[in-house]
């Protein structure tokens, strides 16, 4: 049953990938293959990162409505990036090797995420609404701080920053692809080994402890993984608020199970399917550039409201 659905999803994804590679192809194939191939790879990587991060985050926060982006994780990443430009100065920042910079950003991001969110999560589990609200306001705070810093940064530095961030679906940052693949695969490996434990964690703190899972340690690990994955995806394509929510809700809806061994691959496939086919439609057929993210956000937001009203938060 589940296996069949997973196979169908995989086939659909394969079709979408073929369409993405071939539709409207003009010119030399060797160029196209490399050009579109890297882009496809980036889209797939981002799908994996976002879907896994969201699923994990929902598991440790014990509900199906929160996502790392709603809680301000990707805004935090942009803030970290801006802070680095601010403290190092634009030219030092640019002179740094891209990969090293990326790793440094992830390092700072991990620190900040763990510090901020471990407190919120501990308290929040009892009071979900407060936690969500606090998370959203954190997001606003990070964005405002980013905006604030960007304004007081030297105008030259600001231009540099604009070049560095603001990655989008249509203009993926390709330099970080290799490192991104490495990081995401490492995270996925750890998560796959934890897949049964994650099922237990989803039962809540007391139940997990009762069943012999060291809850505190594992939720720390999961938080670190989530922060890493969000950093990778934000570095590659910029912030996406509701995409993760859309994906995990669909995965729950289609698979109708609580088992991470099934939910993990399912949400990865669904995310990739939406991104690749969406990008194919918008880029190749509608020929319009960056509207995929706006569309996804719009429907994601509607879905969020729907979930709130249906009371399916838990």
């Amino acid at each position: 049953m589940h296996a069949k659905k997973l196979i169908i999803l995989s086939v659909l994804l394969a079709l979408a990938c073929i369409a993405f590679m071939t539709l409207g192809a003009k010119g030399s194939w060797s160029f196209l293959l490399v050009f579109r191939g890297t882009k496809l790879l980036a889209l797939l990587l981002v799908s994996v990162a976002i879907s896994v991060a969201t699923l994990l985050f929902q598991t440790i926060s014990g509900n199906r409505i929160l996502t790392p982006s709603i809680m301000g994780f990707d805004a935090l990443y942009l803030l970290v990036q801006t802070l680095l430009v601010f403290t190092l100065g634009g030219f030092t920042y640019v002179a740094l090797d891209g990969q090293i910079k990326f790793l440094a950003e992830i390092g700072v991001m991990l620190l900040a995420a763990v510090l901020l969110f471990s407190t919120v999560m501990g308290k929040g589990r009892q009071d979900l609404h407060r936690m969500v609200l606090v998370g959203i306001i954190f997001g606003v705070l990070f964005r405002s701080l980013t905006g604030f810093l960007q304004r007081i940064i030297d105008p030259n530095d600001f231009a540099i920053l604009q070049g560095a961030s603001f990655a989008q679906f249509s203009s993926v940052d390709k330099d970080l692809l290799g490192l991104g693949i490495l990081l995401v695969s490492a995270c996925c490996l750890i998560i796959w080994r934890l897949r049964y434990t994650l099922d237990v964690i989803a039962l809540g703190r007391s139940n997990a402890i009762n069943l012999g899972v060291s809850y505190e340690r594992l939720s720390f690990v999961v938080l670190v993984l989530v922060a890493t994955l969000v950093s990778v995806s934000t570095a590659l394509v910029g912030p996406v608020a509701f995409f993760g929510l859309l994906v995990t809700s669909l995965a729950h809806f289609i698979m109708n199970t609580h088992r991470h061994a099934i939910l993990l691959p399912a949400s990865m496939l669904i995310a990739a399917l939406i991104l690749v086919s969406g990008q194919t439609v918008f880029e190749r057929i509608l020929k319009s550039q960056s509207t995929l993210s706006v569309t996804v956000e719009f429907f994601g937001g509607l879905l969020f409201l729907l979930l709130l009203f249906r009371g399916k938060m838990r």
Binding site: R195, Y196, T197, D199, V200, N207, L211, G212, V213
Partner: peptide, 11 residues
């Protein structure tokens, strides 16, 4: 079934 988790660790 989750009651058995401490014994089988997911398998």
């Amino acid at each position: 079934g989750f009651g058995r988790y401490p014994h089988h660790k997911g398998r």
